[in-house]
Computed example of a mutant assay.
Amino acid sequence: MAENPETLILEPQFSKIVDGVLGSEGPVFDKNGNFFMVAPQIKKDEKFAGQVFKVDLLNKQASMLCEPAVDGEGGAPAGCQCDKEGNLWIADMRLGIIKVTQDGQMTQVCRQDSEGRPMQGCNDCIFDYQGSLWVTAPAGEIAPAPYTRSMEEPFGSIYCMLTSGQVIRVDTGIRFPNGIAVLHTDDGRPKKLIVAETPTKLLWSYDIVEPGKVTNKTIWGRLSGDHEGGADGMDFDADNNLLVAHWGSGFIEVFSSQGGQPRKRIKCPFMRISNLHFKPKSNTVYVTEHDNHGLWEFKWETQGKPQKCEMLFD
């Protein structure tokens, strides 16, 4: 799809925070303003040895919090969310869903889904306001199974981890499901699940019927251009505009709450944008990218939508 000539192109000022975080991904704040990100691409002896970092944004320094591993198999952490206690819930391409505490203690949450199938490697995640964790899983079975990805063959899946801890596979047959977001009603009920399918440049929506159950899979949006890559991480602003990292294009695409084609495009000083996340109660956006494996910030037009961990009442 060619670019829409009516789409407004914005060029905000970007400031670099850190670089050299291999595969730079998973930007997230906890409710106290601490910032975390991950390095999924690190390998040792041909095995993954990804890392989780805590970042001092003021002094622009990253310190390793954890190097996830289970039974000698290293992880490839890719997406993060925080709960109210400050725990990191991480989508890991080799270990599935893992939990990391603020002092760096790691737990693998599950090895099978609710129907006894082996978990697949995961990429991104989001808490809805009712506490369910929605997770994309574009990889094959978790370690020690061989590492495979669904870029060509559509075996990618979507999971929902309920507040009970049960992990339900809600859909499968997707080519590399990647970024994920939840659109809520005005009174805070989860309404739609939005999922990026990277190689097709499509954004799919599902109606959320109840925790762990979706219906009505529909094409919600399409990224612009014929660029390399496709849709990666995403985040809603306070006006329910969805900002989507378009990996390989040099742009963040901005969609209205109705989807369709992007209304605005944010030009970045790098091409391979991987993810983005709003600082709580602000219009500052933190962006990860793979050109320099870095973290950057810029100012958006409005504040971000509050995350589950920021909310005062459940």
Rank of each mutant, 00 (worst) to 15 (best):
S114L: 01
I17K: 04
Q112P: 00
G86V: 06
V28H: 04
L183S: 06
N216V: 01
M64L: 10
P306H: 12
M234V: 02
R265G: 00
N275T: 09
H227V: 02
R272D: 10
Q51R: 14
G304C: 09
V170H: 07
G74H: 05
E67D: 06
N241Y: 14
G179M: 10
W134Y: 15
Q51E: 15
W204Q: 12
V70A: 13
Y206G: 07
E25Q: 08
N292V: 01
T136Q: 08
C122L: 08
N283P: 10
N292Q: 14
V21M: 14
Q307R: 12
H293Y: 13
K191A: 13
W247Y: 15
F251S: 03
R222K: 15
R265Y: 00
K16S: 13
F14N: 09
V38N: 08
K31I: 10
Q105F: 11
G165H: 07
L8C: 02
K192L: 14
L65G: 12
L88G: 09
I9M: 07
P138H: 05
G140I: 07
G79M: 10
W220F: 15
A76C: 09
R175T: 13
E6C: 03
D186C: 00
G79A: 12
F255R: 08
R175H: 13
R169Q: 15
D128I: 02
E253K: 05
D226E: 14
K264I: 02
S24M: 03
G121C: 08
L57Q: 08
L242M: 08
S164N: 14
V195L: 12
K54F: 05
I98A: 07
F29H: 05
C82T: 15
K281T: 07
A143L: 03
G233M: 07
P154Q: 11
Q108I: 13
A137W: 03
D45N: 15
I180Y: 04
G179E: 05
E297G: 00
G121R: 03
G250D: 11
S257K: 14
K47D: 14
G212E: 02
M151N: 14
E301P: 00
W89C: 06
E152C: 02
V55S: 08
V55P: 07
R169W: 01
G23P: 02
F236Q: 05
G173D: 10
W247D: 01
D45P: 00
G104E: 09
D128P: 01
E3T: 07
D92L: 08
D226K: 09
T198G: 01
A139N: 14
F176W: 12
R94M: 13
K299A: 14
L193N: 08
L88F: 09
W89T: 07
V285N: 04
K308H: 14
F35Y: 11
E153H: 09
D124H: 07
D226I: 01
T218W: 00
I42Y: 04
D186L: 12
A2H: 11
G233F: 03
K213W: 00
G165K: 09
V167N: 02
M1I: 10
P144Q: 12
Q112R: 10
V55A: 05
C309Y: 02
D207T: 15
C82Y: 01
V38F: 00
P138I: 03
V209E: 15
V209C: 10
R117W: 03
G86Y: 09
Q120L: 14
H184P: 02
Y159W: 05
N87M: 05
